[in-house]
């Protein structure tokens, strides 16, 4: 009876969190269905699930479109969105800074620099290896930022500052390469803008192991981040090995973002905005914020991809532009609503 009196205080908030999670899951499923349904050949929602319920049929065009083109593209979109949003949520927690995101730790610019260099400078670089190059660049850049910020431990502020510096350097490198080798810049530009056009099963196979492993571990770190939010001294007082946990969390964020951008190119905003939106709706308890961000990121990116395909049909826009167009106004709306209370 009496100890219930404490758990009831937690009640309403818990309920709100569960409802949000359920709503996000429902939205994700809807977005996935819509993404598979919409296109030059329109396939009704029910038909989508009918086709997905059985293995691909060679003779059926619709089945081929669903299984070979739209499903893999949509699933890659889900993983990229979830990876970026999780990465952003982790970084905002570790840095105790609401503006932290995968760009801040140099991951995106490192991926960009490595990919551009590989594509342009190395003759006959196989396109299928671009994601690998981008991943290596992203991780190297993340490690560099971490190392530069290290001085008997990594303070969030030093990490952000060295991230900004390394990002600037990498971006300068990218611009330099683009200017020096100005002939075949077209394909590179579209990679830099980020998008899901032409992403298929082989991208999925490159992506899912990283997101599965790093994502699963990330989802289990909610309580650690919660404790870290009380400050280093308090977290130590509560028995946490702060430096180690911080390194683990940054490492996870790095892997998630690196894997995501290596396949999709540079998609901004998802990592910054999704955790914010979730936080405004249902609070900053990381045990909830992390899974909700993953779902929200997947949904946002799939929706943005649908829009990217439809807005200027038959031309496809880079999805990164759409994430910004969809995310920013919604974000501002939430912010205003919050502050007028």
């Amino acid at each position: 009876m009496r100890n219930n009196s404490v758990s009831t205080f937690v009640g309403p908030k818990r309920r709100r969190q569960w409802i949000t999670l359920m709503a996000l899951a429902a939205m994700a499923i809807l977005a996935i269905t819509a993404s598979i349904s919409i296109g030059p050949v329109s396939i009704p929602f029910l038909k989508v699930w009918e086709l997905l319920a059985k293995p691909p049929v060679q003779s059926d065009i619709a089945s081929q479109i669903v299984w070979n083109i739209r499903l893999p593209r949509t699933l890659v979109g889900c993983l990229v969105g979830a990876g970026l949003a999780l990465s952003g949520a982790l970084l905002q927690g570790v840095m105790r800074n609401p503006l932290a995101d995968p760009h801040i730790i140099g991951v995106s610019s490192g991926a960009g620099f490595a990919a551009v260099t590989a594509m342009i400078v190395i003759p006959n670089f196989p396109p299928s290896l671009v994601p690998a190059a981008a991943f290596v660049g992203a991780m190297a850049s993340g490690v560099l930022v971490y190392a530069l910020a290290w001085r008997a431990g990594v303070s969030p502020m030093r990490m952000i500052l060295s991230g900004v510096a390394v990002s600037a350097l990498m971006n300068a490198g990218t611009s330099a390469v683009l200017n020096i080798f100005s002939e075949n810049v077209q394909s590179v530009m579209s990679w830099l803008a980020g998008g899901l056009a032409g992403r298929g099963w082989h991208h999925w196979h490159q992506l899912w192991p990283y997101i599965l492993v790093a994502g699963t571990i990330a989802l289990l770190t909610g309580r650690q981040v919660n404790v870290l939010l009380l400050g280093d001294e308090m977290a130590t007082g509560l028995g946490m090995r702060v430096e180690r946990v911080r390194m683990l969390l940054i490492g996870l964020a790095c892997i998630l973002a690196a894997a995501a951008v290596s396949v999709s190119g540079l998609i901004g905003f998802v990592g910054l905005i999704v955790p914010h939106i979730i936080r405004l709706i249902a609070g900053s308890d990381y045990r909830f914020l992390l899974p909700a961000s993953a779902l929200g990121g997947a949904t946002l990116l799939v929706l943005a991809d649908i829009a990217a395909r439809m807005v200027l049909d038959p031309i496809e826009l880079p999805v990164g532009i759409l994430t910004a167009c969809l995310g920013a106004p919604f974000f501002l709306y939430l912010l205003r609503r919050r502050t007028t209370h």
């Binding site: 404490v6 205080f9 937690v10 908030k13 309580r223 919660n226 404790v227 939010l229 009380l230 400050g231 001294e233 308090m234 007082g237 509560l238 028995g239 946490m240 936080r279 609070g283 900053s284 308890d285």
Partner: peptide, 29 residues
């Protein structure tokens, strides 16, 4: 941490943390 607790001079907490959630963090160790 199971034997010794410290309250720093200027502790910080996320803005939307409730008292009962804060106190529950004390069970971490």
């Amino acid at each position: 941490a199971q034997q010794l607790a410290i309250l720093p001079q200027t502790p910080q907490a996320p803005a939307d943390l409730t008292v009962v959630e804060l106190v529950s963090r004390g069970r971490t160790p």
